[in-house]
Computed example of a mutant assay.
Amino acid sequence: MARDLILGIEVVTADGTVLHGLRKYLKNNTGIDLKQLFIGSEGILGVITRAALRIFPAPTERQVMLCALHSFAQVSSFLDIARQHLDGELTAFEAMWNDYYRLTVERVNGMIRPLPTHYPFYVLLEASGNDAERIHADLEELLETALGEDMILDATLSTSKASAAAMWRIRDSTLELGRTFPYVSRIGFDVSLPIDRMDEYEKAVGLRIKAIDSRAFAIVFGHAGDGNLHLEVHHEHTPERREEFEKLVYHITGDFGGSISAEHGIGILKRPYLKISRTPDEIDMMRALKRTLDPKNILNPGRIFKL
């Protein structure tokens, strides 16, 4: 999370006050962490003018493994053993449901097909560090363990930076895949929820969108390692029912105790659905902070909530 890498910020508030919080150390338990009030607040409380970031040297080696699995329960188990085997080397664990992988390699130009397209689930796993031989050995040991426990059905390891990039391109081609469908009939969602509820959630969305349009379908992928899913609902035959699909997915997300925005904020478009992921008391507290720091409502008015 970006907010976890921010050590300090300088902020200008609505009345022109400059908050000098540009500190460059990690530990600072001196009262309320004011910087966290402004990070992710979408500019409604103040304008961030400078930031001190916690950064790390880029790893010299990145190796990728693409795996096929037969159930989401196995995806979850595979994540557990990947964390055990790789520890700090594990830098990505991306899950792809069949529709996403299959449609991407079939519809996006120039895409390779490292594994067949009939498997139910795919995981793209990345390990990073500075010792190429050790990373490769750790990945091979992980693969051997997973195969021995019948956790994965098929797998391939990158053999070069080019092959690693080609595997990553499958996961990173969400925009290219989206452009192969009519824009007016697809809706993107960015949600988070516990990993042990992801499979049930995907099935609930897939089933209930068909009550609106029997030919509608959902493409699901995401950062399973940190509980974040990206979901696209495609409804080419009922573009006029976009708002109905949107409400449905957000309310299902609420039913599963998830967040309607894992990464991309609320803005104006998601504002009507904020109450799904935040309690009335939480929203009232946000409004109280807004009124205190911006009593004239001049900073990004109307974002996140209305006063």
Results as ranks from 00 to 15, higher is better:
residue 246 E to F: 07
residue 297 N to P: 10
residue 10 E to K: 14
residue 156 T to P: 00
residue 107 R to Y: 11
residue 36 Q to V: 00
residue 225 G to P: 10
residue 15 D to W: 09
residue 202 E to V: 11
residue 109 N to S: 14
residue 46 G to Q: 04
residue 101 Y to D: 10
residue 141 E to H: 09
residue 281 D to I: 03
residue 285 M to E: 05
residue 141 E to T: 13
residue 88 G to I: 11
residue 257 G to V: 01
residue 144 E to K: 14
residue 109 N to G: 12
residue 189 F to Q: 01
residue 213 D to V: 03
residue 250 Y to A: 03
residue 211 A to F: 10
residue 40 G to D: 05
residue 219 I to C: 08
residue 125 L to K: 08
residue 17 T to H: 14
residue 196 D to L: 10
residue 118 H to C: 02
residue 118 H to S: 13
residue 42 E to M: 04
residue 74 Q to G: 01
residue 103 L to Q: 14
residue 223 H to A: 10
residue 32 I to F: 15
residue 82 A to R: 07
residue 131 D to A: 07
residue 142 L to W: 06
residue 63 Q to P: 00
residue 43 G to Y: 06
residue 201 Y to S: 04
residue 1 M to R: 12
residue 275 K to D: 13
residue 216 A to Q: 05
residue 286 M to Y: 09
residue 203 K to G: 06
residue 171 R to V: 02
residue 235 H to A: 09
residue 78 F to D: 04
residue 197 R to E: 11
residue 282 E to A: 11
residue 177 L to M: 06
residue 169 R to C: 06
residue 306 K to W: 08
residue 122 Y to I: 04
residue 22 L to K: 11
residue 117 T to W: 03
residue 174 T to Y: 12
residue 6 I to R: 09
residue 124 L to M: 14
residue 189 F to A: 09
residue 30 T to N: 12
residue 138 D to C: 02
residue 136 H to K: 12
residue 11 V to A: 13
residue 98 N to C: 11
residue 278 R to P: 01
residue 304 I to E: 01
residue 55 I to K: 01
residue 33 D to L: 06
residue 37 L to P: 08
residue 154 D to W: 05
residue 97 W to V: 00
residue 22 L to G: 08
residue 266 I to G: 07
residue 215 R to F: 02
residue 83 R to F: 03
residue 6 I to V: 15
residue 207 L to D: 15
residue 216 A to P: 09
residue 96 M to S: 10
residue 223 H to E: 07
residue 7 L to R: 04
residue 119 Y to K: 09
residue 35 K to T: 03
residue 307 L to N: 12
residue 229 L to F: 05
residue 196 D to C: 12
residue 113 R to D: 06
residue 229 L to C: 09
residue 179 R to V: 00
residue 236 E to Q: 15
residue 31 G to L: 05
residue 190 D to L: 02
residue 131 D to I: 00
residue 73 A to T: 13
residue 18 V to S: 12
residue 138 D to H: 13
residue 277 S to I: 00
residue 48 I to A: 03
residue 191 V to M: 13
residue 57 P to L: 01
residue 11 V to Q: 06
